[in-house]
Design a protein around this nucleic acid. Sequence first.
DNA 1: TATCAATGTAGGCACTGCCAACAAATAATT
DNA 2: AATTATTTGTTGGCAGTGCCTACATTGATA
Lengths: 210, 210
Amino acid sequence: MPTCFIDFLSALIVLSGMLENTPYHHGHLRQSLIDEGLKALEQSGLESLSLRALAESLGVSKTAPYRHFATKRDLLTVLAAEGYQLFADKLEEWEKELINIKGKERLNRIYKVYGEFALGNPELYRLMFSRLGNSLHSERCRINAQRSFAVLIRLAEGMLDSQKDPRSLVLSLYANLHGWAMILLDDIIPPDVGVNSENWQEFALKPELY
Amino acid sequence: MPTCFIDFLSALIVLSGMLENTPYHHGHLRQSLIDEGLKALEQSGLESLSLRALAESLGVSKTAPYRHFATKRDLLTVLAAEGYQLFADKLEEWEKELINIKGKERLNRIYKVYGEFALGNPELYRLMFSRLGNSLHSERCRINAQRSFAVLIRLAEGMLDSQKDPRSLVLSLYANLHGWAMILLDDIIPPDVGVNSENWQEFALKPELY
DNA sequence: TATCAATGTAGGCACTGCCAACAAATAATT
DNA sequence: AATTATTTGTTGGCAGTGCCTACATTGATA
């Protein structure tokens, strides 16, 4: 069955729900839970995301979500997978833009791009890189996490003069990127140091200091 | 009133509680909540720490803790403050040990020591550097966080050749340390990369690669 | 000795995740 | 086309949570 036809039927269902009283079957519940979940996540934070509230805001009974996700954690895992996919897509996109940029400037751009994702999707990023979200037993999470990591490796290799094992470099880079992301997201630096989400890049990368 | 006398009275109260049935007043509730809270935190994790369970395990009613902590968050803030103090103490202690160690070896030791704390107190570390715990409006948290940061600055200055602003170096170092801590605590690296809490230091610091 | 503030208890409210039993609508089978 | 089975909803309920109000007990204070 073609997708556009499904969309058409769905539209009919949605319309009929708006005219008559809401139908017994939602029709889109699984996807709606994901969409609304991502929205609620970013708006209200991970801590206060609840299946019941989600269900209510979709006009559906409190236990309806359990027909699609066995536990709340399963929903969160899917949300994280969504995030990992988005992240990998973004990274591959940015990789193309950086193809002709070398050396220190490349490093600067990587920081910029990584920070943009983390600070642009703070709650999603936090979920992805938490015990809740990093569930690598989830196929989708694992695959897309590896895609992201592969991009980082390729980006790092482009900066590596020697033919050494790039793992050390990419892991150092990764720790730095993730460290900065968490530091900025969770406001860890004492305020008198004068670092914030605007100027952090001035401090982030000073390899000549080592 | 001397401390030892208070301790003696407390011991009496505890003893009487063991002989007769538990007395109406606990006597040590605030401190017991902190101690038991730290224990439960490390044993069962931050997510499943509950005031009610804590109260029950101390043989006290479910609302008794609210006589000492207005909200659950307030208890967590105190636990975090406890962590920050412990952290600062450890760092200052280690600073003395590193006083005659210079250059790259010093850097290695800093990584070792920082990792030991984070991996040795995983739940406490996570609490301290989360939105819940990093409450810098708490005097004790702020003061001890600054103490820790000050140690890091001094340690970094000892490695700095030039007379430049040490903030960049210390912030890079900090991002790296915290990044590695979170990466190891939350199992973020894809397993096929082959990094774990045993061998991470082999990868952590390769400044010559930059 | 009477009073009072500190520190405990009991009951309850609103919320949560999730389980079991039942109902409706859609898909599959005869 | 009629019947059956499966999917996807609903209601009610359980145990757990943070935290509020009202009340009880106690040691310190006047």
